[in-house]
Simulated scan of single mutants.
Amino acid sequence: MTHSDNNSVCILRLTALGDCINAFGIVNAIHEDYPEVKLKWIIDSRFSSLFVSDGEPIVPLAPVEIKKQGLLKSVMALRKEMKNERYDALLNMQTSIKASLLSTAVKAINRFGYDSERSREGQSIFINRRIDKPESPHVLSGFISFARSSGFEGIQPKWNYHLTEDEITTAKALIPQDKKILVIAPASAKAEKNWTADGYTKIGQYALEKGFHVVIVGGKGSLETELCNSIADKLKDNCTNLCGKTSLRILAAVISLASVVISPDSASMHLASSLNIPVIGLFAIHNPDRVGAWNFRKYEVSVYEQMAAAELGDKVAGWRYRVKNKDAMKSIDIHKVIESFDRICSDYSLN
């Protein structure tokens, strides 16, 4: 199959934000490399604002209000919105039954879903083509396989958020301009995936000794706020705490100005990677081969393999295996994080 067989493509990836950031790399690559292709991306409305620049979608979007409307009303609303649209291909990049039901609103000739190893929750009922097995277990490798299986050979992820001058100016007003910046994004969506406040504080203090200014970022949730405030209190006046104070677009602008980012498996980690800002990803619960920072795997600090081995003994952990020990992240050694930080400083002449 060549891309000429699919001159109109609808891509469905709703959540989570980190996965949407990775998916954007493929959506945008098709948009930029194949401008003749009619394109639309169905995405959860909670995350769509990241992909809108100066009031205009960077790629054509169809946001769905699942959180507000519920699934049934969202399906009906999407059917109404897309009733006069036809596509050569639907790329259903999400295996959930929720995504599959939403996919019924899309009229498409070729309906691509995951290969048999990755397909779940009855996705096979809603598709008529399977993608080729991805080259690696990484989520983004799967997205690449969707594009290549539908004829976009040689596609590589390409991120461009079209950050505006106003957004960059706003971000610059929030952080010092005369120092190297370490952004600490300490929180993920799940508490067990977060490193300790003490660990983040120690790497922050080490960065301060190296002449960096520390900026802490996070969302408005109580989990993130508590963790960010705990770190900020320990670093006292030597940091800027932006937790809960930025939109997704301004968060992207702030990270784009960073020298280094440190984060567990989170949207901020993927955002840094997509902006080509060196990031130290921290892992214990999920396999970094599946969810690591795409562009900066060499700097990650992971205890995932040893934590999985402790639970499974002689059994081999499948690429999807999730570590059950909720204290696993506490096993990450501050010295390993400092080593990774020093390597970045050396590689990027930040000393």
Rank of each mutant, 00 (worst) to 15 (best):
T2Y: 09
H3K: 13
S4K: 11
D5F: 15
N6E: 05
S8H: 09
C10W: 01
I11P: 05
L14T: 06
A16T: 12
A16H: 11
D19A: 09
A23W: 02
N28I: 04
E32R: 13
L39G: 06
I43F: 09
S49E: 15
S49V: 03
L50Y: 05
F51N: 13
F51T: 08
D54E: 13
P57V: 08
I58P: 14
L61N: 07
A62Q: 12
V64H: 10
E65D: 15
K68E: 14
Q69I: 00
M76H: 12
A77V: 00
K80Q: 09
E81I: 10
Y87S: 02
D88P: 00
L91K: 10
M93Q: 04
M93S: 02
S96I: 00
I97F: 15
S100V: 00
V106H: 13
A108D: 03
G113E: 04
Y114G: 01
S124Q: 12
N128K: 11
D132K: 15
D132G: 08
P134H: 10
P134C: 02
P134D: 11
P134M: 05
E135I: 07
P137I: 06
L140R: 03
L140G: 00
F146A: 01
F146M: 08
G154K: 07
H162V: 01
L163C: 01
I168E: 13
A171Q: 06
A171L: 08
A173D: 15
E192F: 14
W195K: 02
G199H: 09
G199T: 03
L208E: 04
E209L: 12
G211F: 12
F212H: 10
H213P: 00
V215N: 11
G219E: 08
N229D: 14
A232E: 07
D233R: 15
D233E: 15
K234R: 14
L235F: 05
K236G: 02
T240A: 07
N241Q: 15
L242S: 03
L242Q: 05
G244R: 05
T246M: 11
A253E: 01
I255A: 10
S256C: 01
S256H: 01
V261S: 05
S263V: 03
P264C: 06
A267T: 07
M269S: 06
H270L: 04
L271I: 11
L271P: 06
A272C: 02
S273K: 07
S274E: 09
N276R: 13
I277K: 15
I280N: 08
G281Y: 11
L282R: 05
H286E: 14
N287F: 05
D289R: 14
R290P: 00
G292D: 06
A293V: 02
A293S: 12
W294M: 02
W294F: 13
W294H: 12
F296E: 04
F296K: 02
Y299F: 15
E300V: 04
E305W: 06
Q306L: 06
Q306P: 02
A308K: 05
A309W: 02
A310M: 08
V316A: 12
W319T: 03
Y321P: 08
V323Y: 05
K326V: 14
M329Y: 02
I332T: 11
K336H: 10
S340L: 10
S346P: 00
N351Q: 11
